[in-house]
Write a protein that binds this DNA or RNA. Structure first.
Lengths: 228, 228
DNA sequence: GCCATATTCAAGAACTTTCGCGAATATGCG
DNA sequence: CGCATATTCGCGAAAGTTCTTGAATATGGC
């Protein structure tokens, strides 16, 4: 306490250190590939080659990126035999990503542009947790999970039915006409739900998109279910 | 919709673009000086030389950093005469910073270390919004704002009394012994409140720290008051 | 118009990040 | 043990970031 007053440079040195230490977290997030890997790992644990293939980068590169994320505590790793299973570190990480996207979309026009260029003019769908709860309160509404089955098994919204795109295309999911459908996938930057909605509408069904994934749901304090 | 299926590389290109665009926000945050500037601007609008002096960097350097923050929409600038008044862009930025610190502290031991080295072993004080509301519900509790008066005037917690460190030291703030005091300052990485608490205790007063500033308060949905 | 001042710009040196490539390590299995 | 496979490491080239320095721009007052 006394020494705090003696030297401005001591104060400055520690302040610099503290902010530099905090800055390591945004530094780890400051790369498109790492953000994509983090999104993938928010769905379920995956091996290095698994994320590498999904993100379209080399295994060595993916390994390096995952190590950067792990060094900041953004992902955790569990080694089983020769495999390294990486996963997102927890709800705090989901919350950080949600706020990050919120700022990026509101502030930086290029994000909205890129989104628009990728998805085309899509209807916004249901974007908020409250909106989702409202829609799902209706007994005539069924909630579909358009992600691959492994991700559904790892964590899905309460009451959701697994309806991977492939299964929908080949008609393997029973879809009574009496229901209204709400479809979600990995999160706001994922197209699975958009494609599923298009597919259901082609068949004359009433379908809407929910632009949230399990990670955003958990970030907002919701609980998820798992299989097995 | 059709073209989305035609080319994996088109999908990949847009995905890369989208994630790269989002990554520009953490890139802007990935620097200790910029984080410190953002903390300063979360208290009140300031000119370039103002933040430069407070953060201990050159004016040209501060200008460059502020431009980086502005390009991502993290700060806004208003020009009045030859002065540029920069300010934090809004509640979404505060929320992002709160989540950033939460992840940095929980995940990266070096943040906690740096904090500890800087502050020494300090008692945690009141760290949550709910804790603050509870403490302040007591009619015998007075809330003190230890920041410089300009910051108090720009935004302070409802019912807070301005008690800048200088004024406290020179005994210019009336402090009845019948009260219990809760003191806050800029936020968790600011020492003003710690010093104020030490000062009050030396005088035999009952004082505790609130480790939140107005920015964190607003991030949690609270409202603030301003003077004038 | 001219000066003082606040801010921004431009160029360059030091440093860090990214990514491919090939090699190294480590685990499990026959 | 020897081999196949998953992951990590090390190196080097290209690209990006940071900070300093000195100059350029722009505003307001005399």
């Amino acid at each position: 306490m006394a020494e705090r007053r003696t030297s401005g440079s001591r104060k400055r040195r520690f302040k610099d250190e503290l902010y530099a230490a905090v800055a390591r977290v945004p530094a780890a997030l400051a790369n498109g590939h790492r953000l994509e890997l983090l999104d993938l790992l928010s769905q379920r644990p995956r091996t290095v080659q698994d994320v590498a293939a999904e993100a379209g980068i080399t295994v060595a590169n993916a390994s390096q990126h995952l190590q950067v994320l792990a060094r900041c505590g953004l992902v955790a790793v569990e080694r089983r035999g020769t495999f390294a299973h990486y996963r997102a570190a927890g709800p705090a990480v989901y919350r950080l990503l949600v706020e990050l996207r919120a700022v990026a979309e509101s502030a930086d026009a290029s994000v909205a542009d890129a989104e628009q260029a990728y998805f085309g003019p899509r209807e916004p769908g249901i974007r908020t947790i409250d909106g989702a709860r409202d829609a799902l309160a209706d007994a005539h509404t069924a909630l579909l999970d358009a992600r691959p089955r492994e991700e559904y098994e790892a964590a899905h919204l309460p009451g959701a039915i697994s309806a991977p795109l492939d299964a929908l295309r080949s008609g393997k999911v029973a879809l009574p006409r009496s229901k209204q459908y709400v479809v979600y996938c990995r999160g706001p930057y994922c197209v699975f739900a958009d494609e599923a909605v298009a597919l259901l509408r082609e068949r004359g069904l009433d379908a809407r998109r929910l632009s949230l994934g399990p990670a955003e749901w958990v970030a907002a304090g919701g609980d998820v279910q798992r299989v097995g």
